[in-house]
């Protein structure tokens, strides 16, 4: 799937560049993008290592297990395939909480750890499990309820009430997340 998507994107880019005559731009974009990716990784090296470090502290102090115990009933409904003792639950809780608070930098390391734990239980290492699909779909449905950066952008452009979009935003986020859960639940039954 991802292979096709990737090849498809590049393929379309090359074909369209042929039509629009923008081959030079496309070549430049390929080079600049790879440079940008490395720059992004360097930034991430700092920020994500910091969050992973803090996460480990939170894990060792028992804070994460305390939080994931609170979320256990909901998580067991969403991920019935995972054994109760799985550490994936801890990381999934952390990822969800960080996402809700709008801390994307903290969410990603926890999410990657969750995938790692779920992969350990996966009999077929190339194919996603139901739990992984559920986790990814929920994750990409946007869980963020605190959208401070948006409020800041609106303020910057002289909005008379920059925070008025928070309530409607939360409502729309609930819709997209509900749609995600419904879709994943229906599909895993049919599979």
């Amino acid at each position: 799937m991802l292979n096709w998507l990737w090849a498809g994107m590049i393929g379309v880019a090359i074909i369209v560049a042929g039509i629009t005559g923008r081959f030079g731009d496309v070549t430049n974009a390929a080079i600049t993008s790879s440079k940008d990716a490395v720059e992004l990784c360097v930034t991430m090296l700092g920020v994500m290592s910091m969050w992973m470090g803090l996460m480990r502290v939170a894990e060792k102090s028992g804070l994460i297990s305390a939080l994931s115990r609170k979320m256990a009933p909901a998580l067991r409904y969403l991920f019935p395939d995972l054994p109760r003792s799985s550490k994936a639950f801890h990381y999934i809780s952390t990822n969800i909480i960080a996402n809700v608070l709008g801390l994307g930098w903290a969410a990603t390391p926890a999410g990657l750890k969750a995938m790692e734990e779920m992969q350990k239980l996966n009999p077929d290492k190339k194919t996603a499990t139901k739990s992984m699909c559920m986790f990814m779909i929920i994750n990409m449905s946007s869980l963020q309820l605190v959208t401070m950066n948006l409020v800041a952008y609106r303020l910057q452009y002289n909005s008379s009430n920059p925070s008025e979009i928070i309530g409607p935003g939360i409502l729309a986020t609930l819709v997209s997340t509900a749609a995600a859960v419904a879709f994943a639940k229906l599909w895993e039954r049919g599979d």
């Binding site: 995938m115 992969q119 190339k126 996603a128 729309a172 997209s176």
Partner: peptide
């Protein structure tokens, strides 16, 4: 972005209904 990073970090290539589900959720949003 999210899908590539998460799945490729554990080397999963068959992502099944994930993309369809994510697009559906975003469309609903």
């Amino acid at each position: 972005y999210t899908m590539s990073v998460y799945f490729l970090s554990v080397k999963i290539t068959k992502t099944r209904y994930t993309l369809a589900g994510a697009l559906f959720a975003n469309f609903a949003g």
